[in-house]
Design a binder for these strands. Structure first.
Length: 579
DNA sequence: GTAGGGTTAG
């Protein structure tokens, strides 16, 4: 119309823009908006505010920023309500410094911020782990006359918890109390979740009491935080019990809580039961989400019923009417692990048919498949093509590849990949080093181990329990048990708890070398560290006991028997944490 | 009409 010389009217274009906004199509809205600008038509302020808000919510911060600048250029009122969504959108997608620049430029132009504007920046900086900047913003907020409120503090608490810094998070909680800014259920939920992740059950009990005393009602998020946290720590039975209790007590629970319940059932190999439960709660009015379906699909795959999982695809009533990329990846991942090429083809075909694009997870699964069937060159080609197509591999992609290469005896290739790509900020992490160090120790390549350790420290990455485990295993293999024990001590000094696997490694080495008294003494250490012997430990102890009996070491034999029997009794009781 | 929390795939 325009090219033929007709000028669309302002009203007609504004109508089209509003129509697209109403339909939620942001790409089309932006096209109309840009077209209007070319004709020097300025949409009305409420429409632009709506566009900014929708773009921001969709994470299209750059576009939102662009529209806002147009609004500014028009001399529109610089009101926090219109630009706060942009600040938040920028801060949520890792562009906190852009948000900061915007905040300052608006201030210069005379805009009046509010608490939410500063909170956005506090959110962005803490999310990116830029703690100095985050606390600086908190100070600036106060200097400008705004007291941080419960939301501001909750943001900080949340990201401290995400970094596992529960102590610092609890300090903030104390600070809130002193300033008369009462934490609410959201704050408590965040902390409860992280306490679960760290197995700090006593403190969970104490915090739940505080919540109760303050007469704050737990909500669906509370139940999800607790049970989801427990599930992540592998406490499936406890999580299950708690869910049953909450549901049977008639507490209001939403679909996310049910999703965790489905997950629990699937983890106990009861995905059929999870499916029946889903059907029965749907009849009672629960609206399932794709997460509900995907969780159950994953359960079927875990139990090796990929075909049934694929059949379920057609029976589910998907939210938004179609399975999403996670649904497909669930099946794809299972097929790749099995090396099931025909299933992989079926999934890929269906993805194409349904218009679902492969993402970084899908590609990582395929790389894993090629590694599994030994086609290493295809793996590396796929990695290259991912990068070429803008599907940036994540640290998980790289670590998976390194692990597979090392397991295929290709430490050299793994190390080459590591050197070539290891400067991206997110890669390598401690796990990457653990993989390479483990392989280097196994292959007896001491110089590489040393180099990796130096490199690791230079990146300010710290060895974790897995790193120590590798070293201890290597030392035990060489019979250097006392050095292994020294490393165990060093772990404790660095605040790391030796795992039962580490203890088992040392126990096994002691057994092989006939150091039975040392076994008894190590068992005492385990008790002191709060580390329970598991089935593997008990097996080693039983063997040691019978050897001692044959060699007529009655004293050691008796002590071992004592430990073994004590653990058998514990097995028959229910788990301690349930109470 | 602005801002914080939980659940799925590698």
């Amino acid at each position: 119309m325009w090219r033929s010389g007709f000028l669309p009217s302002f009203t007609s274009l504004l109508k089209i823009l509003k129509k697209w906004l109403g339909l939620g199509s942001l790409v089309d809205s932006m096209s109309v908006f840009e077209f209007m600008l070319r004709l020097e038509y300025f949409p009305t302020e409420p429409t632009l505010n709506l566009l900014i808000s929708m773009l921001s919510k969709a994470g299209m911060a750059r576009e939102a920023h662009f529209v806002f600048r147009v609004l500014l250029g028009k001399g529109c009122l610089k009101c926090a309500h219109s630009y706060n969504p942009i600040l938040w959108a920028l801060c949520k997608c890792g562009q906190s410094y852009t948000a900061l620049a915007l905040l300052y430029s608006l201030k210069k132009m005379g805009a009046v911020h509010n608490a939410a504007s500063y909170t956005a920046l506090v959110y962005g900086f803490s999310r990116e782990g830029l703690w100095e900047e985050a606390f600086c913003m908190l100070d600036e907020m106060e200097i400008d006359g705004y007291k941080p409120n419960v939301i501001t503090y909750t943001v900080i608490v949340k990201f401290l918890c995400d970094e596992g810094r529960i102590g610092d998070a609890l300090d903030i909680l104390g600070k809130m109390g002193k300033e008369g800014c009462d934490p609410d259920i959201v704050t408590y939920n965040v902390i409860l979740r992280e306490l679960c992740h760290q197995d700090r059950y006593v403190e969970i009990g104490e915090l739940l009491q505080v919540i109760d005393q303050k007469e704050i009602s737990p909500d669906s998020f509370t139940y999800a935080a607790l049970t989801g946290g427990l599930l992540k720590r592998g406490q499936v039975r406890v999580a299950n019990k708690l869910l049953l209790y909450v549901i049977s007590a008639g507490c209001t629970v939403d679909v996310a809580v049910y999703n965790i319940y489905f997950h629990c059932l699937c983890r106990e190999n009861k995905s059929g039961e999870a499916l029946s439960l889903l059907q029965s709660v749907v009849e009672k009015g629960l609206v399932p989400t794709n997460v509900s379906y995907n969780t159950i699909l994953n359960g079927f795959c875990r139990e090796d019923h990929i075909d049934e999982a694929l059949q379920l695809f057609d029976h589910f009533e998907w939210a938004n009417n179609s399975p999403d990329v996670v649904s497909f990846n669930t099946i794809l991942s299972a097929a790749c692990k099995q090396g099931n090429s025909s299933m992989i083809r079926r999934v890929l075909y269906r993805m194409e048919y349904e218009g679902v694009k492969l993402n970084v997870v899908s590609s990582t699964c395929l790389i894993q498949y090629f590694c599994t069937i030994g086609k290493i060159s295809e793996c590396l080609e796929l990695l290259e093509s991912m990068i070429h197509n803008g599907l940036n591999p994540t640290v998980v992609t790289f670590n998976m590849l390194l692990d597979k290469l090392c397991k295929n005896g290709l430490l050299g290739t793994a190390h080459r990949i590591f050197r070539e790509f290891g400067n991206t900020g997110y890669f390598p992490n401690t796990t990457s080093y653990n993989i390479l160090i483990h392989a280097s120790i196994r292959e007896g390549s001491d110089s590489l181990v040393e180099q990796l350790l130096r490199d690791m420290y230079s990146r300010r990455l710290k060895p974790d329990a897995v790193t120590y485990g590798s070293f201890i295993k290597g030392l035990c293999k060489e019979g250097k048990i006392s050095v292994a024990i020294q490393l165990r001590d060093q772990m404790l000094e660095n605040g790391l708890t030796p795992t039962v696997t580490i203890y088992n490694t040392i126990l096994a080495a002691m057994f092989q070398r006939g150091k039975f008294w040392d076994i008894v003494s190590l068992l005492k250490d385990m008790t002191m560290d709060g580390c329970e012997p598991n089935a593997v430990s008990i097996e080693i102890l039983k063997q040691a006991m019978s050897k001692c009996w044959m060699k007529r070491f009655p004293e050691v034999s008796k002590q071992l028997e004592f430990v073994i029997c004590g653990n058998c009794e514990k097995e028959t009781q229910t788990g301690g944490i349930t109470s």
